[in-house]
Write a protein that binds this DNA or RNA. Structure first.
Length: 483
DNA sequence: TGAAATGTTGGGGCG
DNA sequence: ACGCCCCAACATTTC
């Protein structure tokens, strides 16, 4: 009997066993399987994973390693140059193939093309599968063969093209990995913080494939219960909280879509369509970054190439924004939720981004970078698209004159101030009447509530009306001269 | 996936 | 009964 060759299953952002086409294909070949993860952050260029992302990755790898072990296999961890590590492992295991799930970031695509070439020269089969998106960036084009640049027609085309696929089952057992194949200890990757700032994260998140599936179950119950508009309410938080699981591929986006399509058919729930739309936005973001790979760093709308956003990374406004000390409670609540849990409610993300880029005139890239470092769901395609959308220079962008008023947004979406009180404990004693604008609290009330404005909580760091007018003026003048 | 200014309408108070 | 004013409620326009 001939010795069977091995297949390396190279995990990247598909850290799961269910509905994983690369793993499934490897299993179908009935050969030895070497599950591999290579830590190579330097290959991401300017966009190496931030601290929150690394925290999540640590736990996700830990969970994947545990699940693989239960099935009789073992996760091989390596670090360094991806191609070199692959070549070395190919040699160690006499593998004939490397299977992986395709990724779409500019750096990842470049690396994979390079790996493809080099492995081909070694006569190694390198196969990439779609498991990260509903539709891959190249598989959807408008009538003139161009990529879409507007969401609504993309959404229509997507609905035409996407068929809910049969999901691939998770294996119930896996072939073992020979002991001589060495693996690094997870701790050696140094993904966890050296300072213990991750308490809030640990309290907020259960990381890993099983936790992701559990979260999907919970949220599908909420969708069937159908709380109208609760996804827009940070105080209620009816959002799915699936984003980090989707980013790291602990949850299959196709599984989520399938659940939503079923729920729509069986129960006719508007919430199902709304979340499906979000998943298609996610595809759209990857579509855009794939076809326009500079948009993580440059405006999509070239007219904005020289817009004078403030770039100083030590400005007083930026610092206050980052620390949640702007004096606008809804903004500060969001920024503190982000810092403490690695996540922020989506409605609040728009509010804080509008304040930074429009009222404060600070460059959207500084905001994007802060989110990149602090979000557990940081995703290059979505982060870049969303920041550009708010700043007005992106795809399907909000027109420059669309400026959020944090006080109105707060009154509308956190009417009782519960979200504010949860994240800004020093304001918790304030009557609801003043919770959205603490600076209007009469001195006597301040004393009674033991909240002294200016010392316990800052005065607003900028004048909403004046900064809005200034922003409108700047944008209007700039656009007139740029077009 | 705005906000604010401006315009319009209609009910009620009042002379 | 009528015109007038005020103003809230809603619609439209503008940024």
């Amino acid at each position: 009997m001939t010795k069977k060759s091995a297949i390396i299953v190279w995990f990247r952002t598909d850290l799961r066993l269910h509905d994983n086409p690369a793993l499934y294909a490897a299993l179908n070949h009935g050969e030895r399987i070497i599950p591999l993860y290579i830590h190579a952050p330097h290959e991401e260029g300017r966009w190496q994973p931030g601290a929150a992302s690394r925290w999540w990755l640590h736990h996700s790898l830990s969970s994947l390693a545990r699940d693989l072990k239960q099935l009789g296999s073992r996760l091989i961890l390596r670090a360094g140059n991806s191609l070199e590590q692959l070549q070395q492992l190919v040699e160690e295991t006499a593998a004939a193939s490397v299977f992986a799930t395709r990724c779409y970031t500019p750096a990842g695509t470049k690396r994979d093309n390079h790996v493809q070439q080099a492995l081909q020269d070694l006569n190694i089969d390198f196969k990439l599968y779609n498991g990260n998106l509903l539709l891959e960036p190249d598989s959807i084009r408008n009538k003139s063969g161009q990529p879409y640049k507007v969401f609504t027609p993309y959404w229509r085309a997507h609905q035409q093209l996407f068929n809910s696929p049969a999901l691939l089952p998770a294996p119930d057992q896996l072939p073992s990995v020979p002991n001589r194949v060495s693996s690094m200890a997870l701790a050696k990757l140094e993904l966890l913080p050296t300072q213990p700032w991750d308490k809030g994260m640990r309290q907020t998140w259960q990381v890993g494939e099983q936790a992701g599936i559990q979260q999907l179950r919970l949220h599908s119950q909420e969708i069937i219960a159908d709380y109208p508009d609760s996804h827009d309410r940070p105080d209620i938080d009816g959002t799915s909280r699936l984003s980090p699981y989707l980013h790291f591929g602990e949850l299959s986006v196709r599984q989520v879509a399938k659940m939503l399509i079923q729920s729509r058919q069986q129960h006719a729930r508007p919430g199902a369509t709304a979340l499906l739309r979000q998943l298609v936005w996610r595809d759209f973001a990857h579509h855009i970054l794939w076809h326009f790979p500079t948009t993580s760093d440059k405006p999509f709308d070239a007219r904005y190439n020289h817009f004078p956003w403030q770039r100083r990374s030590n400005s007083r406004l930026l610092k206050a924004w980052q620390q949640g000390l702007t004096g606008f409670p809804i903004v500060d609540a969001g920024m503190r939720q982000l810092w403490q849990t690695g996540w922020m409610h989506n409605r609040v993300r728009m509010i804080v981004a509008s304040l930074l880029t429009k009222n404060a005139g600070i460059h959207w890239q500084l905001g994007a970078r802060w989110f990149w470092d602090t979000l557990v769901d940081a995703d290059l395609a979505q982060n870049s698209m969303n920041w550009q959308w708010v700043a007005g220079c992106g795809v399907d962008a909000a027109p420059y004159f669309r400026i959020f008023n944090p006080v109105l947004q707060s009154q509308k979406f956190d009417p009782r101030g519960e979200y504010i009180r949860r994240w800004i404990p020093e304001l918790a004693g304030l009557p609801t009447e003043y919770i959205h604008q603490p600076e209007l609290t009469p001195p006597l009330v301040q004393q009674a509530c033991k909240v002294i404005l200016g010392s316990d909580y800052p005065e607003p760091i900028l004048d909403l009306k004046a900064s809005r007018e200034q922003a409108l003026l700047n944008y209007r003048q700039y656009i007139r001269s740029a077009s």
